[in-house]
Amino acid sequence: MSKRKLTQNQQRRIQSNNIKNLKRHQRKNKKDIDWQDDMLGNSQNGTVVTRYSAHADVETENGEIFRCNMRRSLSSLVVGDKVIWRKGNEQLQGISGVIEGIYPRENEITRPDYYDGLKPIAANIDRIIIVSAVIPSLSLNIIDRYLVICETSNIPAVIVVNKGDLLNELQRKEVEQQLKIYEDIGYQTLIISAETKENMDKLEVLLSSGTSIFVGQSGVGKSSLINMLLPEVNAVTNIVSENSGLGQHTTTSSTLYHLPQGGNLIDSPGIREFGLWHLELEQITKGYREFQYFLGACKFRDCKHLNDPGCVICEAVKMGKIHKTRFENYHRLVASLAENKAQRHFSTS
């Protein structure tokens, strides 16, 4: 007799219960350090350089790093946060101090989580490096998802295609044509190879100022790039699964690294699917930067930019002012947004 396959919602509920039970077990078997005021030194500034589930590593202004607990009053804490913390008079259970406050963020990247709502990933970022790869395939739809996040967060984006050494001449021309779609609307693009070091010098120059963050699906080579940029880090690498074509997660905590040539780089856990269901339709539409010039000029205020009469977006596509691929990807995102919201409503009702 065959076993009945669990639905996706059933799998999520089981996973959620498992996570809750694990957290309950951890709380039961772990005593939190109760930092009293007389156990701590003076307040000082620092930057969160690594975020773990229960702790964070804070770097001082002179470059020292201390592992800290967080006050329960802090709602969220991510890599890149500027914080106020106090060092303990002695180390307790491997913890050196406590974070007491977070300075206002200049910006932040967030992603939706089915169980915890909207979760920040990193803060105070100068540019987002969207890392893609030609294996298993270059997905413009996924690139567009990341670009919507960049636009809504108001953070400049750079599109980097890794594993360029795997392209033959014909494939390279095809990828270059795909990237030209983004270059024509103002995005910087770069084909690189961590294997042959193609254009790695250009990437290093790009990263040499401010704080950058790598985002992208698992298996695109983010950890390999970290190894090349920072050999001493020895980030764990993994090979794309030959069976599924999907990469395995190789980074379990977000970490900020200082680059030798200057600048900082945040490596974030791999994300196979960057959900956008927390965004409203208007935000996704504005997330396509080439649409912005035409918005508000359609005949009807509730124009869906599909088959509506008097739609200036559709007219711009016909005239070649908006690329057809981007237009089609936009409607894929809109359709997936509606589908995901419907599924969430059904699973919580």
Rank of each mutant, 00 (worst) to 15 (best):
M1I: 12
Q10T: 09
Q11N: 13
R13G: 07
N17L: 09
I19A: 08
H25L: 07
N29M: 04
K30H: 15
I33D: 07
W35G: 00
Q36W: 04
D37Y: 02
N45P: 09
G46N: 09
R51Q: 15
S53L: 09
H55E: 15
T60W: 08
T60V: 07
S75W: 03
L77R: 08
D81M: 06
D81F: 07
I84A: 05
W85C: 11
I99Q: 07
N107M: 00
I109W: 06
I109K: 02
T110W: 03
T110D: 02
R111N: 01
N124C: 01
V131F: 03
V134Y: 04
I135S: 13
P136V: 02
L138E: 00
N141A: 11
I142C: 06
D144K: 05
L147M: 03
V148N: 05
T152V: 09
N154A: 02
N154R: 02
P156L: 01
V158P: 08
N162R: 06
D165W: 00
L166V: 03
V175G: 07
E176Q: 14
I181F: 09
I185P: 14
G186D: 01
Q188V: 00
I191S: 09
I192L: 12
T196L: 01
G210A: 09
T211I: 14
S212I: 06
S224H: 08
N227Y: 01
M228P: 07
L230F: 04
P231D: 03
V233M: 01
S241W: 05
Q248P: 13
H249C: 06
G262P: 03
I266K: 03
I266T: 04
L281A: 14
Y288W: 13
G296D: 05
R301T: 14
C303S: 09
K304W: 09
K304D: 15
C311N: 01
C311Y: 00
C314A: 15
E315A: 11
K318W: 03
M319D: 15
I322P: 10
E328H: 09
N329G: 13
Q343F: 11
H345S: 11
